[in-house]
Amino acid sequence: MTLALDDEKRVAVAPGPAADRGRARLRWPVRAGSVVAAVALWQVLTAANARLWVRFDRFPGPADVAREFGRQLRTGQYYLDVAQSVVRIASGFALAAVLGVAVGVAVARSRWANDLLGPLLEIVRPVPAIALVPVAILLFPRNEQGIVFITFVAAFFPVVVSTRHAVRALPPVWEDAVRTLGGGRARVLASVVLPGVLPGVFGGLSVGMGVAWICVVSAEMISGDFGVGYRTWQAYTIVDYPGVLVGMITIGVLGRVTSGVVELVGRRATRWLPGEEGRR
């Protein structure tokens, strides 16, 4: 026998998608417009050779940069550099994500792990990853491994810190519920802790992706022989300013795309959050 209770109708209904779509139609032109306005300002300042304390008279204009960009896009070198940097980011970031979550959970859930790893983490954390370049050169037989190591270190700490915090902020009722249903430590870890910390972890991953780009580019500038950062610095040493700006724009676009991917994956993985009701 089933009982028909009449509280179904009190369930919140997501707001109609029509209103949302209307607002979204307006947002895209605004977003594109802000970028276009910045480029237009850049064009005006460089075309007028403006000298307003900051000097634009020798600064390459958008047209020069676009021409240089077009030229580079037709060379194989450009794609090779992009691929090199993306592979470095991807491997360093993936390592940081996996180890960062593992260490963060261990430190937050086990007193032993906290006593063993906690002080070490707190001492290494303040050292900027880019200051580890000499260490990386000494430690790793190949340049490539050193750069991935630096990228890994950069992204690792934000992930550890946010994971540790997210584990400690988990409401205890979920763990109690699973334990009273017969779940052991492994079950609590797999069914409560790991899914429960995801919102916090993705916060750390977003920050981590940002600093990973900063560090991969800096490391490439110092010790690379390929990659977007290396190419940008290379252009500077031969006084090829349009080339420098092409490098910077490339880094900006790659950074935007990768953090967008992290954001998107995070949204999909945490659709159960209360704030995600009518969002897309």
């Binding site: 409401p171 009722v173 109690d176 519920a177 009273t180 249903l181 899914p195 995801l198 945490t270 159960w272």
Partner: peptide, 13 residues
Amino acid sequence: RALVFQDDALLPW
């Protein structure tokens, strides 16, 4: 021995 809580004990994901 099952424990039923006042509220919010379901795993929200």
